[in-house]
């Protein structure tokens, strides 16, 4: 596959940021992700999946056997007295109840775990706009505005005649990613300015609605060895360009992250301490609109 080769080539060129999340085409399943919680959720998903497969084999198997065995064309004679059986009906009510209880236990446990955002070491405020994301590191005041990258934006215009396969990470690339540290419990405070958005990064198994007038909380703690780029998208219909406000997180080691944050602080502060400057130099993130 041509485009896959190309995507791989580009990933190699941008070696420093080489993404382990390079997607294969014909993907069938969810990503296990890069944190303990995301793997828990993946496992839960797989457990549910295998239960469903098992139930399907039994139920569909019974139905298919019935359909083959009791064909009129094979001389089947109906047993019109077979219309009720309390025993059987109790059995097929109780067994599903038991299966549901078995399913509910790990689900409840995982849910409680995802809810506990206490003891975080870093807080990032996320704001959804039509159609971009604003990130603010609460303690240091560093702000990042993250929009769809130019190449994707040019290619996605109606009649652009640019083949999306030639654009690296088409529609999943931004100008300024959200830089986060690995191995640190990070708390997210998620809100929106105009309409409802939803901040979703599959690798973190976090999807949380960004709602104007509300502040939602989420948290993650990425494995220390899972540095790299991970991509997601807005998941709540938010108007015309809902499909064009991706999310990219740039996971760095704790030391690299702190160095980055210091540089940003230095770059953003002299310009205007109250509201960081518009259009700062090169890789610097811009203000919030």
């Amino acid at each position: 596959m041509n485009m896959k080769k190309l995507a791989t080539a580009i990933a190699v060129v941008t070696a420093a940021l080489a993404s382990p999340a390079a997607f294969a085409a014909w993907t069938l399943n969810m990503t296990p992700g890069i944190s303990a919680i995301s793997r828990r959720i993946y496992d839960l998903h797989m457990v549910m999946y295998w239960w469903c497969v098992a139930i399907a084999i039994v139920v569909f198997g019974f139905m298919i056997y019935t359909m083959v065995r009791f064909r009129k064309s094979q001389g089947a004679v109906p047993d019109t007295k077979l219309v009720h059986s309390t025993t059987v009906e109790i059995i097929w009510t109780v067994i599903p109840v038991l299966i549901l209880i078995i399913m509910a236990v790990p689900a409840t446990r995982t849910l409680i775990e995802t809810d506990d955002a206490s003891h975080s070491q870093l807080t990032i405020r996320i704001t959804g706009y039509q159609w971009k994301w604003g990130y603010q590191y609460v303690d240091s005041g560093v702000e990042v505005l993250s929009t769809l990258d130019r190449a994707s934006n040019a290619a996605r215009q109606l009649g652009s005649n640019i083949d999306p396969a030639t654009v690296p990470n088409y529609l999943l690339n931004v100008d300024h990613p959200l830089v986060v540290p690995a191995g640190v419990k990070v708390r997210l405070l998620i809100s929106a300015q105009d309409v409802i958005h939803s901040w979703w990064v599959p690798a973190l198994a976090i999807k949380k609605d960004a709602i104007p007038g509300f502040v939602n909380e989420a948290w993650f703690n990425i494995d220390a060895d899972k540095t790299g780029l991970y991509r997601g998208q807005c998941a709540e219909l938010c108007g015309r360009d809902h499909g064009f406000m991706p999310i990219v997180i740039d996971v760095r080691s704790k030391a690299d992250f702190e160095a980055w944050l210091k540089t940003q602080q230095a770059m953003q502060r002299p310009a205007d301490p109250a509201a960081p400057a518009v259009a700062t130099a090169a890789p610097a993130p811009a203000h919030t609109g």
Partner: peptide
């Protein structure tokens, strides 16, 4: 809402099993 939603599987299951049992020992076309 997670637990109440899971409960729906029970009556729905009963219906599917009843339909299957209707075909059992029938004379199907």
């Amino acid at each position: 809402f997670m637990l109440s939603t899971m409960l729906i599987a029970i009556p729905t299951g009963v219906k599917v099993f009843n339909w299957s049992a209707t075909m059992w020992k029938g004379s199907l076309t």
